[in-house]
Structure formats: structure tokens, C-alpha cells
């Protein structure tokens, strides 16, 4: 019955879909191939695989510093976005529905507005605060734009949670903090983790805000890659891109495993 109900797509349609998917993945594979080229310009390896561009990358103090700075910034901004977004979502979950719809929408706004607009505004405000070229400046900007990812995943997790659970905990005398800590958190942990992963990836990859705010003291990895592409296009950029891809894929696998365990 199910096969009839499914009414599988016809062969040409399936064929084009797989082609499109391959085209979506292709550029990523190309980046890996170019990163191990043995030639001095962007190209596929000719006479064998060479790791020289990874050596360039991992022996350059500038690149290492950028990797480290991006990592620190992503960690801290993820924690801030995670805390604000999770608490906010839990609050929305129990506030009367009219208000909570508006609140959740407000917390999603950074996903809707173009980063160039926020980047420009933050640049002006941060300048007044003396936050240009500081960790604080980038972390706060990344945390604000990371909140929506946490709100989305945590709200989804909360939607599957029976509100009676929370009422039961309270009627047994648990206070607010205890209820959240012992009852709500364990149940929505996978949602929180997913949110943290997405917020981390968001910060780790973010370029437009960094174009305005980064400087000598704080020069994130995407910003250094951007400058690298504009200054001197050599296969080291492909090695950097590969590192960015691997970190993202690793985190996504982690996120999937986290969700799988819960199921």
C-alpha cells in the first residue's frame, strides 16, 4: 500500500534531483581536491598529492592565531546566545500564546534582516563604545545574531514537551529554578545542543560583520580568508576552506548523533 501511496517520482525527475544534489556537493569536494594540489596555483593535483598548503597553514602564526581567535569567539558567543535563547524560549513557551508568538518572532529577527544592515549599525554603535577591533565587539554581535538558531531548536524541543510535566513539578513544590534545571533542561537537552551547534557554526563562518569590526587584535578566520582571496589567491585558501568545511561537518555529525540518541 505504501508504495502505491508514495507514488514514486519518475526516473527523469529522480535523475535530475540527484544531479542537482551532486552539483550542490561538488564545490565542496573540489575545495578538498584543490587543497592537496602539488602545483603553485588553484588547480587539481597533477603528479600526486601534496600537503604543503596545509603545512603553510598550520605553521603560519597568523593563520593559527585566526583559527584560535575564531574558536574562542565562537565558543563564547555560542554560550551567550545559548543562555539567552534557551531561557527566552522557555519563557515564551509558558507565556500566554498571543504575546509569546510576538516575542518568538522578535527573537528571530536577526535571521530576517541582512547582515550588511546590522553590520553597518553595529559598526557605528560599537565605535562609540570602543568595541571595534575587540573580542567583546565581535562576540556580542555574533551572540545576538546567533540567538535565533537557539530559539528555533529549543522551541521545537519544547513543543514536544508536555506542559503538565512542568505543572506537576511545581505542584510537588519545586521552585522555578529547580523545575527548569531538573525537569525542563533534561528533556530539551538535544534541542539546546542543536541550537548551540548552529550558533557555533554561524559565528565560526561569519564574514560580513567581521568586515566592519575585525582588526589587528581580532582577525577571524573568515576575515583572514577574505583578505587572502583578495590579496593573493594561492591554494592555501583551499586548505583554509577545507578546515572550515571539516569543522562544520564534524559539528553537524555531532548534532545528528545528539538528536539520534534522544530518539
Amino acid at each position: 500500500m505504501s508504495s502505491f501511496a508514495r507514488d514514486n517520482a519518475s526516473l527523469p525527475v529522480r535523475g535530475s534531483a540527484w544531479t542537482i544534489i551532486c552539483l550542490m556537493i561538488l564545490p565542496m569536494s573540489v575545495v578538498f581536491a584543490v587543497s592537496v594540489t602539488d602545483r603553485p596555483y588553484l588547480s587539481l593535483p597533477e603528479n600526486g598529492v601534496s600537503l604543503q598548503y596545509y603545512r603553510n597553514l598550520f605553521t603560519s602564526p597568523e593563520w593559527l592565531l585566526s583559527i584560535w581567535q575564531s574558536f574562542v569567539i565562537a565558543c563564547v558567543s555560542t554560550m551567550v546566545a545559548g543562555a539567552l535563547g534557551t531561557l527566552g524560549s522557555i519563557g515564551c513557551w509558558r507565556i500566554s500564546s498571543g504575546a509569546s508568538n510576538v516575542l518568538r518572532l522578535v527573537m528571530l529577527v536577526p535571521l530576517m534582516l541582512p547582515p550588511i544592515v546590522y553590520g553597518l549599525g553595529a559598526y557605528q554603535v560599537w565605535a562609540d563604545l570602543g568595541w571595534i577591533n575587540t573580542y567583546t565587539g565581535i562576540i556580542v554581535a555574533h551572540a545576538m545574531t546567533g540567538i535565533p538558531y537557539v530559539v528555533i531548536t529549543v522551541s521545537t524541543a519544547l513543543a514536544g514537551l508536555d506542559p503538565k510535566l512542568e505543572q506537576a513539578a511545581r505542584s510537588l513544590g519545586a521552585g522555578m529554578g529547580a523545575t527548569i534545571w531538573y525537569v525542563i533542561f533534561p528533556n530539551i537537552m538535544p534541542g539546546i545542543l542543536s541550537g548551540l551547534v548552529f550558533a557555533f557554526i554561524h559565528s565560526w563562518d561569519e564574514l560580513v560583520i567581521a568586515l566592519f569590526i575585525a582588526g589587528r587584535n581580532v582577525f577571524t578566520l573568515p576575515r583572514r580568508m577574505w583578505d587572502g582571496i583578495n590579496e593573493n589567491l594561492d591554494p592555501t585558501m583551499a586548505a583554509v576552506a577545507s578546515v572550515l568545511i571539516l569543522v562544520t561537518l564534524g559539528l553537524l555529525v555531532f548534532e545528528l548523533l545528539g538528536r539520534g540518541r534522544k530518539r
Partner: peptide, 11 residues
Amino acid sequence: WISVLVRAFAW
């Protein structure tokens, strides 16, 4: 989730 910068670079 792969960075748009990386994807543009690939193209």
C-alpha cells in the same frame, strides 16, 4: 551549513 564564503570560493 557550509560557509557561503567557502562555497563562493569553490565556484
